[in-house]
């Protein structure tokens, strides 16, 4: 992990970070393609992404459906095999680790899934579900068994008396709490969240967001937080990376992204978010044209050019590099990047 500082365009505030012990998770030039058989171009879900996550930090990864953010997360936790690139965890290259070698990594790197209905085994009780990671790592007894599970239930706001119930007896919000408790039971350092609140009701969403913020404060966790909802990411993340069609188009501190988006896509994305205030209805906003092209045949040059109002010939032939164009620690991948005052919410 010494040769790679040069590529660290992404991790804005971490120029020398690869040797620092605070870096927990890092992916480098990660590529994940899904082959669809002979002669058919593969789906290039993730196509060269570098990211790093530091101790206690919350990194938000936003983008629309099909942009590859979920695939990136799943590849980073080694649920999907990368096509190319490397994954580092606490200074250790885990790209090629087998299941046994991964065991200690798994203990510190957990994941919470999107769908609270599909992510819990319907044939296990809530208590068994939460205890399962402990049993897999042969730590159930050592960790305190049932008492430990009950403790976690309380931590995430569930009634420990409900340990014996099955998932279908809980509401969506409560199920997501079970999923969170399961991710916490091994005392991890990093949790990857894949759209943890997007399938929840509005009034439940705030409860879970608060829970995630509290847990992070209490346990000093680092989050990789994936979402399509920019307002949720804004509330949780310290740093934000915006993804489009398999690549990262802009990254930076939360404030920088939300208040001075540089990339036209980020600007369009922010402008498209409906604002719950009718008096702001007539604000001027850039609108991205059309829809996401297929990831099997991404446009040449800049991938956003087919929807961009700034695109010209240069964008069609020359892929813009993700770099800090204005020297304020806020890299973007656009030839014509220019700060634009975002519409405040």
């Amino acid at each position: 992990m010494t040769t790679t500082e040069a590529r660290e365009a992404v991790a804005a505030h971490s120029e020398a970070s690869s040797s620092e012990p605070t870096e927990l998770l890092r992916v480098e030039d990660l590529v994940t393609w899904f082959s669809r058989g002979r002669g058919i171009p593969p789906v290039r879900a993730v196509d060269g992404v570098s990211l790093s996550l530091h101790k206690g930090e919350a990194l938000g990864l936003v983008g629309e459906s099909g942009c590859g953010k979920t695939t990136l997360a799943r590849t980073a936790v080694r649920l999907i095999e990368p096509t190319a690139g490397r994954i580092w965890f606490k200074g250790q290259d885990i790209t090629e680790h087998g299941r046994r070698q991964l065991a200690p990594v798994r203990r510190s790197l957990q994941m919470v899934f999107q769908d609270p209905y599909a992510s819990l085994n319907p044939r296990m009780t809530a208590g068994e579900i939460v205890a399962q990671p402990l049993r897999i790592h042969h730590r159930y007894r050592h960790a305190g068994g049932r008492a430990k599970v009950a403790e976690l239930f309380e931590l995430v706001g569930l009634d420990p008396d409900h340990l014996g119930r099955f998932p279908h007896e809980f509401s969506g919000g409560q199920r997501q709490r079970i999923g969170i408790a399961r991710a916490l039971v091994l005392d991890p350092e990093v949790i990857v969240f894949d759209e943890p609140v997007s399938s929840l009701d509005v009034s439940i969403r705030a409860q879970i967001i608060n829970l995630l913020a509290d847990l992070r404060d209490e346990l000093g966790l680092a989050y990789l937080f994936i979402a399509h909802d920019l307002s949720v990411v804004r509330h949780i993340a310290d740093r934000v990376a915006v993804m489009y069609l398999g690549v990262i188009v802009e990254t930076g501190e939360r404030r920088a992204i939300y208040q001075q988006p540089m990339h036209p896509y980020t600007q369009a994305l922010l402008a498209a978010v409906p604002i719950p205030d009718p008096s702001r209805r007539d604000r001027a906003r850039p609108l991205a044209a059309g829809e996401l092209p297929t990831a099997a045949r991404p446009p040449s040059g800049c991938r956003f050019r087919t929807r961009c109002w700034k695109a010209d010939d240069r964008c069609a032939c020359e892929p813009p590099e993700l770099m800090d164009r204005f020297d304020h620690g806020h890299p973007s991948a656009c030839h014509y990047a220019a700060p634009r005052e975002a519409v405040e919410r």
Binding site: S203, A206, Q207, H235
Partner: peptide
């Protein structure tokens, strides 16, 4: 309970229960 600018870094006033 909607996340918004003024509440950055503060807990959201959530509606309890479901």
């Amino acid at each position: 309970s909607l996340p918004r600018l003024e509440l950055e870094g503060q807990p959201l006033p959530a509606i309890p229960g479901s």
